[in-house]
Design a protein around this nucleic acid. Structure first.
Length: 593
RNA sequence: GGUCCGGUAGCUCAGCUGGAUAGAGCAACAGCCUUCUAAGCUGUGGGUCUUGAGUUCGAAUCUCAACCGGAUCACCA
């Protein structure tokens, strides 16, 4: 069954030495050569003490005689190309067909518990393109971890307090005229975002006016009445002033309703949501505890710091002179709360790479404070999303709004489908459903296929292109497979439990089975590398190859009955892998399109 | 300046635990719908894998250095 083991045994028999698995380098044979699997013999030369060609030939001959799955071989330079029998491949396909959850490992009750934090929005602005990348990566990673047998808790920490919210609140009080999402018809998060922008505009106006009276920029900032009022609101909020708190609650509830809509459209969700307003006071205690243990030190003004110079970093502030906490302190507190709530084995933070330093420091600090998980917390760091014109700048109004983008993708999917006549004969509801699946599939795939670590360029025009390496291309292939299977069922063609092993398969067919068989390894690698892109690109390769096959060979029209069954089973399994793979990416797949 | 990350076709990206002649898509050009969905398929052109050294049977891949780009080094979160 396992070719790798057979080769290992062959080496042992021929050269009298059991070698480590790492020396048995088996890979898929390149298209231009004959064979299915290629053994690179260079690493074995030390043991065989013969030249590459001779070693390869000896191994090839031995394998052909002693391993029934090996039908033949050829040697080119130091490469031993092995041809595997058709019956072996049919057997592999049969195994795949039997395995209901092919590519997935079931989570056991005692499997490691992974908490994944993602999304983490501010409540003063709607979600934008950068958040989309974050949400898609976080959700997808969660699904991939689950598929690898981990227990997963998806969490979101909402930054619902601070001066930024107070700015929106102030603008609403001053100029809002009691506006609500209902009265304005705006989505709650957009409404609040608009007031935030309004504050900023008025604040800038005020600054300009002060500066025109001869004040320096700094002086103008300290004398600003608007900023002082915003700070006053924050003080009132922290003091628990009833009116302020209830306004804050009201406005936040609008924002949450808006976020929920966006999350729903994106298909992401959370198991546990933390709010910073409830956690921001935590952490102080831990810091003081560390101070007591001598892990941290106090400056003359009373502020508390950590000296990280021994780790090659700077000094880091943890408590201000007035005793209030900073971002880092809050994250320590949040970590503590989470570990109180769940027996977490591994903590993953999905946060942009601009915070690499923050998480480097957090990891060290948690470790110093005696948290076991500190050292191996994972910062799943991803690159920024840029536009063809450059970075998104809120000041220049070049931020791509998440809701707008989603709506645009769905709308374009609908128009394109209609133009191609794909929606003929569909009900209104079906058309809408398909457009949603396709539009969002295009968006999600476009973002997830890129290596998360890299900055990426999001070209709105290209993202709506449904040709080439895109989600819709893959969805389209899936829909066609489903169509073939529907037609087969209509004609009464039945797929047997087991396929006939005496079939003679062509190169394309064996190659497809071979690719299929590699799926579980891809899912594993994807989790280890923290990269949904690995799955995305694998699915694309598979689909690309299948499309060529689909074009060249008939499935339902095939006259050889067992070959027809084989091709149907092959198609069905490829469809299943597309579906499973896409579900790990959080992308739906349509029955028809 | 310190630290971290990136640099592959005109553009967007794969390939990176070292393996054979570096791959896709887009864009350009030429073909293919009486046959299971043409959102498809086939072909052509397009490369000093930023540069230079090193490691070795072999380097886009590993090491070092340089160059370019980005992030970060806040009593913002």
């Amino acid at each position: 069954m396992d070719i790798q083991q057979s080769v290992k045994q062959a080496v042992g028999k021929l050269y009298g030495q059991m070698v480590d698995d790492s020396l048995i380098q088996l890979q898929k044979t390149k298209k231009e050569f004959e064979g299915h699997l290629t053994l690179v013999v260079f690493p074995l030369l030390k043991i065989s003490k013969k030249n590459p060609e001779q070693t390869a030939r000896e191994l090839g001959e031995y394998l052909q005689q002693n391993e029934s799955a090996i039908a033949g071989f050829n040697v080119i330079k130091g490469f031993l190309n092995l041809t595997i029998t058709s019956s072996y491949w049919v057997g592999v396909l049969n195994e795949i067909t039997k395995d209901q959850s092919f590519g997935k490992v079931k989570a056991a009750g005692d499997a490691p518990l992974v908490m994944i934090e993602y999304s983490s929005p501010n409540t003063n602005k709607p979600l934008h393109l950068g958040h989309i990348r974050n949400n898609l990566l976080g959700y997808s990673l969660s699904e991939i971890m689950k598929a690898n047998g981990y227990r997963v808790v998806k969490t979101n920490i909402v930054n619902d307090r601070g001066i930024h919210i107070c700015k929106s609140m102030l603008a609403w009080k001053k100029w809002g005229n009691g506006a609500t999402p209902e009265s304005t018809g705006k989505k709650g998060d957009h409404l609040i975002g608009d007031f935030y922008v309004l504050f900023d505009k008025e604040y800038k106006k005020e600054l300009a006016e002060l500066q025109s009276r001869g004040l320096t920029k700094e002086a103008a900032e300290t004398q600003s009445v608007l900023m002082a009022e915003a700070r006053e609101l924050l003080r009132q909020w922290e003091a628990g002033d009833l009116g302020t708190v209830s306004l804050w609650e009201k406005m936040n509830s609008w924002v949450y309703a808006g976020f929920d809509e966006t999350y729903k459209a994106l298909g992401v969700d959370f198991d546990k949501i933390y709010y910073e307003s409830q956690t921001y006071l935590e952490g102080k205690e831990k810091v003081l505890e560390g101070l007591g243990k001598g892990v941290f030190y106090k400056q003359e003004d009373g502020s508390v710091w950590s000296d990280l110079t021994a780790d090659g970093l700077d000094n880091k502030l943890l408590l201000r002179a007035d005793g209030t906490s900073v971002y880092m302190t809050q994250d320590i507190g949040t970590a503590k709360l989470r570990f109180d709530d769940y027996p977490i084995d591994k903590m993953v933070y999905v946060v942009g790479n601009e915070q690499n330093y923050h998480f480097q420091v957090l990891s060290l600090l948690l470790d110093k404070l005696g948290f076991e998980f500190g050292k191996d917390l994972v910062h799943f760091s991803y690159g920024m999303v840029e536009l063809p014109e450059g970075k998104m700048k809120s000041r220049e109004g070049t931020v791509v709004d998440a809701d707008d983008l989603i709506a645009e993708m769905v709308e374009t999917a609908w128009e394109t489908s209609r133009e191609l006549g794909k929606l003929d004969g569909c009900t209104e509801e079906e058309s809408r459903k398909i457009s949603e699946i396709v539009g969002l599939g295009a968006l999600k795939y476009f973002i997830l296929k890129v290596d998360p670590r890299k900055n990426m360029v999001f070209n709105p025009k290209e993202s709506i292109d449904f040709n080439g390496n895109t989600g819709p291309f893959i969805q389209y292939t899936y829909a066609r497979i489903r169509s073939v299977l529907r037609k087969a069922a209509e004609r009464g063609v039945v797929l047997p439990e087991l396929l006939d092993p005496s079939l003679a398969l062509n190169e394309k067919e064996t190659s497809l089975v071979q690719m299929l068989a590699g799926f579980p390894a891809i899912v594993k690698e994807s989790a280890e590398m923290f990269s949904p892109a690995i799955i995305a690109n694998y699915i694309y390769d598979l689909v690309k190859e299948y499309n060529q096959f689909y074009h060249d060979y008939s499935i339902l029209g095939e006259e050889n009955e067992s070959l027809k069954q084989f091709r149907m089973a092959l198609s069905k399994n490829i469809g299943e892998v597309i579906k499973t793979g896409f579900s790990l990416l959080g992308i739906d797949v349509p029955e028809r399109m």
